[in-house]
Amino acid sequence: MTESNEHAGKPGHRLRAELPQEVTPAPAPGAGPNPAAGRDAGLTGRQRLAQGLWPPRVTRAQLIVALLLFGLGFGLAVQVASNSDGDSALRGARQEDLVRILDELDDRTQRLQDEKQGLEAQRDELENSSDQAEEARKQTIEKERQLGILAGTVAAQGPGITMTVTDPHGTVESKHLLDAVQELRAAGAEAIQVNGVRIVASTYLTDSGDGVSVDGNKIDAPYRFQVIGKPQDLEPALNIPGGVVQTLEKEQATATVERSSKIVVDALRAAKQPDYARSSSE
């Protein structure tokens, strides 16, 4: 038997002879030579893995995330260490020190509670003061409105009556109209105007030729009274026996009274500043 036959008779030589040769992928048609393929052709799998992992290719975003994670971890480590130090200090403190610390915490809690109650009391006081100030402001406005109505500086409206006096013979004098004003005031009239002239506390009436003057303003018949008040009181006050209506009838004049749910008194008087009188609170 020859030497080649002897080697062929061994199992190892037969196994290597049966294994196929490593197949190298053929290049694509028209493609040129691949230098990288030539360089990697002689590398093992472990060498190619190491070459892919080093040097590392780090992007800017990855670097920022790494720095943030490092900072977060460092902060957590510092906090844990600080808490551990505090817990260690409390664990190592004496009983007297722990009692003192608890007393100080109780005192501080009590002071904070007292301060809270004081602030709440101040808040309630300010709220009450604000409410009182608002109520005082409303009362002041209402009082000013009421005084304005009485003084004739603001317009008014409400239920009342309208009395019209006709004087075909010119026999009505200022005294007859003054009696009517006084009777209406006594019956509760709150606002009166006659022929567009507001009647106030200082109003005076005089005879003026064939007519009457109210506070220097001449008015002519028919005399039209617009009065705000309770109609159930005003009308009977004018119609009582021997009252205003009968007196005018004796003077050959006619007085008609009509009730109304809405009377408008819009004649205004300018506010007059007193020359001598002053408020007693000044």
Rank of each mutant, 00 (worst) to 15 (best):
S261K: 13
T206C: 01
A271H: 11
V197P: 05
Q95A: 14
L119Y: 10
T44S: 15
P11E: 02
R185I: 07
L147T: 07
V227R: 02
G42R: 13
P222S: 04
M1E: 07
D107L: 12
T164I: 05
G188Q: 04
G42I: 11
Q62R: 09
P33H: 12
L105G: 10
L234D: 09
G75D: 00
Q157T: 15
T2Q: 12
S261T: 14
N195T: 03
A61L: 10
I240M: 07
S82Q: 13
A121M: 10
T203D: 05
A81L: 09
P11R: 08
A28G: 10
I101A: 15
A277T: 12
S281G: 03
R185W: 12
E120H: 10
G38W: 04
E115V: 01
L15D: 00
V172S: 04
V23D: 12
M163H: 02
E3C: 03
Q122R: 15
S260E: 05
T171S: 11
T206Q: 13
D124V: 12
A81H: 05
G86W: 01
V23Q: 14
P222L: 07
T109D: 13
E22A: 10
T2A: 14
R224T: 10
A133W: 01
V58P: 00
L150Y: 08
G52R: 13
G243L: 07
A8Q: 15
F74D: 01
K116V: 06
N128W: 01
K175A: 13
T247L: 05
L98Q: 12
S130L: 11
D107Y: 06
D275G: 15
T2F: 10
S82G: 09
G209T: 05
E18H: 02
S88N: 11
I141F: 06
K272T: 15
K250F: 05
A267K: 09
D167A: 04
N5M: 11
Q273C: 02
A277E: 14
A81K: 02
Q62W: 00
S82T: 11
V257C: 05
L105C: 05
Y223T: 03
K175E: 11
V181K: 05
L178C: 01
K143M: 12
A89V: 09
T140D: 08
D220C: 00
R57L: 08
Q110K: 14
A187N: 07
P55F: 01
D103M: 11
V200T: 15
R48G: 00
D210T: 14
P168C: 02
E22V: 12
T44E: 04
Q122V: 11
L105A: 15
L98W: 03
I192E: 06
